[in-house]
Design a protein around this nucleic acid. Structure first.
Lengths: 249, 249
DNA sequence: CGAACTTTTGACCCCATTCAAAGTAGGTGG
DNA sequence: CCACCTACTTTGAATGGGGTCAAAAGTTCG
């Protein structure tokens, strides 16, 4: 495996460990998994809607989106994943429920079989526990996002999204919450926010004129995090859960 | 324990078993759990937003809603639970992430400690596996709902909701998909659908004049399931996963 | 039988969509 | 290096779905 692949797998292991302590052996067991490398250009579907796959996907490079598709062809992106995320770990628990996924930028993934993951979960209870906890955090993020989609205006959704994405990029070691690359087209952003591309554009423009953020190409510079977080009603708790979980344990 | 309490716990055990086979002993272990009885009238919060609880809640009677609350006080209901549902099982994996919950009607709950559930999950891998699968199904339902909130019109959301709720009532043995009681106020319905009470009313009125459904008080009678499902882009797959999971295994 | 919720309806407004077109890269081949 | 193509961003004008405000008509229950 290349450095990048090992490194993203290590990130995943580290995240699991923070959620639920793993022994050195548990960790070795994870790192010893055999996976296939998958490359995908932007807008390529990695898992088609309605498909049952026997794989889980770890993001090595790029941005990928989980989505639902409607009969009119429209898509709603329900989760965004970046380096170090295992995008569809819950498929280990219920293979019939693997979500549809799409590469949003040129991406590299490491693909593992649900079979292998289930096997190591069976043999190592600490890993099983950590996997479940990881899925639970993912579910909480989606739930929070559902709330945003239901009740909030375009700028509130955008603000929340920028806060969340910035923090996650920071956690993944790709810039910080005030300065990161959000390499999506405005159409893709619209599919995540439940807005039309046109309105995404207008919303961003408003943010710029209010001096909330500056964008050069797709690099975002946040000028006033407090104001952005207030606007988006952003509560960092649900993202920094790793720490809370440890305290509670 | 009363008949009702035992019966709802059995429903929960049965559901787990369909997701991931349990032995008789696993089942006994579940049925042997000690829980507190909780009663709550409509609109009472069972778990306050932002609270960390050490409990999981099984619905014995009534309808309860999981929700997120915003700083302006508005709420978005992210999941609805009825008899036999364990509403916040994922709290076993991550106690810090127990969602806020509210009784939507007068309800009876059976409350278990996450500690006890975690203990039996640790001692019985089959149960741990089943718990994870149960949480995964819950997450898939929430994800589907997020998609609806993001991209669909009021009538599409309503149609989808009625289809889903009807099927779940049928599965729980409370009427069937064409004929069930949806005992929520239109305000509560609005909080689930991301709509104002006024617009919920108008949407229901439209359904009535189109002869999609009839409502007497809060009893719903669906006249044309096919049309309702088509309107809501309802895909039953994600709810009848129990069967699919068994085929895949 | 009155007080407090609900459901229903009407009138008006606004946020976001739709439709349309111009401007701006980025990339490819001649 | 320019011409051209395709994809993305930006802006304008008109439309509409759902929100807001307000009030009346049912219900439920003490």
């Amino acid at each position: 495996m290349s450095f990048r692949q090992v490194s993203s797998l290590e990130q995943f292991a580290e995240r699991l460990h923070r959620l639920s302590p793993l022994s050195g052996e548990d960790r070795d067991c994870l790192m010893g998994m055999g996976g296939d490398i998958i490359q995908a250009r932007a807008n390529i579907d990695i898992v088609l809607p309605g498909t049952v796959t026997d794989y889980c996907h770890l993001i090595v490079e790029g941005v990928i989106g989980r989505f639902a598709q409607f009969s009119d062809g429209k898509r709603q992106i329900t989760a965004i994943h970046i380096v170090g995320d295992m995008a569809d770990l819950r498929a280990v628990a219920t293979p019939a429920l693997s979500p549809a996924m799409q590469a949003l930028t040129t991406s590299t993934l490491l693909r593992f079989t649900t079979h292998e993951l289930r096997a190591i979960a069976r043999s190592r209870p600490a890993l099983a526990q950590a996997f479940w906890a990881y899925s639970a955090v993912d579910a909480a993020v989606v739930e929070r996002w559902a709330a945003n989609l239901g009740r909030r205006t375009a700028s509130q959704r955008m603000a929340h999204f920028l806060c969340e994405f910035g923090l996650r990029m920071e956690n993944a070691g790709r810039g910080d919450r005030l300065n990161f690359t959000l390499d999506l087209t405005q159409t893709q952003l619209g599919e995540a926010l439940g807005l039309t591309p046109v309105h995404v554009n207008r919303t961003l423009k408003a943010f710029r004129t209010q001096h909330l953020v500056t964008t050069t190409k797709r690099d975002f510079l946040v000028h006033d995090w407090e104001r952005l977080a207030a606007l988006g009603d952003f509560d960092r708790t649900y993202l920094t859960i790793d720490e809370m979980v440890r305290e509670a344990a």
